[in-house]
Design a binder for these strands. Structure first.
Length: 447
DNA sequence: CTACATGATTGGTC
DNA sequence: GACCAATCATGTAG
């Protein structure tokens, strides 16, 4: 306010009519120096003020004419330098106050997030990487591949909107900046505007626009978050396996009942088998084998625990799969008998694998060893052998029907120990005797 | 809508 | 790190 008064005082020494320039350059007129022409000066000031007050009432042409008149005025350069001086003095204090502030941390956060989500940043890489990561987080199952493509489509949509909006903002910002700069340049002819000042103005404009951009980024982030929560972060969102997949897994489970712990290779194999049927649309990059195996592990984990918890409930299912494998099993038996007859004197477990490996029965050939009375204690192979023995025996029992009258004729959790766990139960010797197997069922079935 | 089935997750153990 | 047991959360049949 005080500054303004000083400026007005400085100006008061100049009449727009240009008749006289009083006082030093911009210095306030000394008081008590008003002499006889004091009234006339006051009159001039009144005129100036009046002109200023009514300037908006003037027409554009009139104003332009006045402007031109001012520009051409002989005292203009002098006045201009005065203004420059004043401006320099006042401008410095303003400029010092607001120098370039550090980058906004929130904006940085948003930027980082958008980059991480693949919205900003390089076109394909970021997006698919984020989607892949999200896919992994969601379990990486092939079942989800459709959803993932959906997710990616939506993400791309957001990305597009974001980029077009950003572009619009930038364009508007540039337009506005050039407009303002032109205006300032134009005005710099009549009032002192330093390049620094223009720069500062540009900075202000950019800050304003970046605050608008931040809103855009924020809402984009929100959109991505919502999308994520809907599609991927709902990690528990599950899809039931297809019937075929369940069948394959069940077949393996019941044919390896005494040791239903598929090895890494077996898991991989099962995963491959299942995923083929599970997803016709297999995106190799997305459903990495690790993820598939995880599903298999999950399935077996659940299956083991649930089977163990309530064996009775699974009896029917067990029978069903026994019947299923019965066909192949009986074939295997027949083949085994045939084989053992063919090379009976030799050790049965040598070189018989190839001849008994059946397409649908995994390592069913092992069962022959079990049937032949060979016992492999402790080792996983041994357990498998026995389970295969189980299967085949069940298969036989069903086809032959020698288990009639028993409560649970088909399956028995032979190798479940007292706690009901497979683990820690070394190869149960009972299994090797066909009579004991079914008999040992009863105690376990009640749960 | 309810009850059950089932895939996924979590915390603990070995 | 694999596994178990409990639990969560969703899918599905009735």
């Amino acid at each position: 306010m005080e500054e303004q008064a000083r400026i007005m005082q400085a100006l008061s020494g100049v009449t727009l009519a240009g008749h006289s320039v009083q006082g030093g350059m911009g210095l306030p007129p000394p008081h008590g120096h008003e002499g006889t022409d004091g009234d006339g000066r006051k009159q001039d000031i009144g005129d100036i003020l009046h002109q200023i007050m009514t300037i908006t009432d003037q027409s554009l042409d009139e104003a332009q004419a006045k402007k031109h008149g001012l520009n051409c005025h002989r005292m203009k350069p002098a006045l201009f330098s005065v203004l420059c001086e004043i401006k320099e003095k006042t401008g410095l204090s303003i400029r010092g106050a607001q120098e370039q502030d550090p980058p906004d941390p929130q904006l940085m956060r948003l930027d980082n997030m958008l980059l991480a989500e693949g919205v900003s940043g390089p076109e394909k890489g970021g997006g698919s990487a984020a989607a892949a990561a999200a896919a992994a987080a969601a379990g990486g199952g092939a079942e989800n591949s459709i959803e993932h493509s959906d997710y990616r489509a939506k993400l791309t949509q957001i990305r597009q909107i974001y980029h077009t909006e950003l572009e619009k903002y930038e364009q508007a910002c540039n337009e506005f900046t050039t407009h303002v700069m032109n205006l300032l340049r134009e005005q710099s002819r009549t009032r002192p505007i330093s390049p620094k000042e223009i720069e500062r103005m540009v900075g202000i404009i950019h800050r304003k626009f970046s605050s608008i951009q931040m809103q855009l980024k924020q809402s984009t982030c929100e959109a991505v978050m919502i999308l994520r929560s809907r599609f991927l972060d709902a990690r528990r969102k599950r899809r039931n396996f297809s019937k075929q997949a369940t069948e394959i897994l069940n077949e393996y489970f019941y044919s390896h009942l005494s040791n239903p712990y598929p090895s890494e290779e077996a898991k991989e194999e099962l995963a491959k088998k299942c995923s083929i049927t599970v997803s016709q649309v297999s995106d190799e990059e997305e459903r990495r084998s690790r993820g598939e195996e995880m599903l298999v592990s999950n399935w077996f984990g659940n299956k083991r625990i649930r089977y163990k918890k309530n064996i009775g409930k699974f009896q029917e299912e067990a029978n069903l799969y026994a019947a299923k494998t019965a066909v192949t099993a009986t074939h295997a038996v027949a083949a085994a008998i045939h084989s053992s007859q063919a090379n009976s004197p030799t050790t049965p477990n040598s070189g018989s694998s190839a001849s008994f490996s059946l397409p649908n029965s995994g390592d069913m050939f092992m069962s022959m060893q079990s049937l032949n009375g060979a016992s492999y204690q402790g080792a996983q192979v041994g357990a498998n052998v026995q389970s295969q023995g189980d299967t085949i025996r069940h298969a036989i029992s069903q086809t032959v029907g020698y288990n009639d009258g028993l409560r649970h004729p088909m399956y028995s959790p032979h190798s479940l120990n007292g706690n009901g766990g497979w683990h820690g139960a070394p190869t149960p010797s009972s299994v090797t005797s066909p009579n004991e197997g079914p008999g040992s069922v009863h105690s376990d079935t009640s749960n």
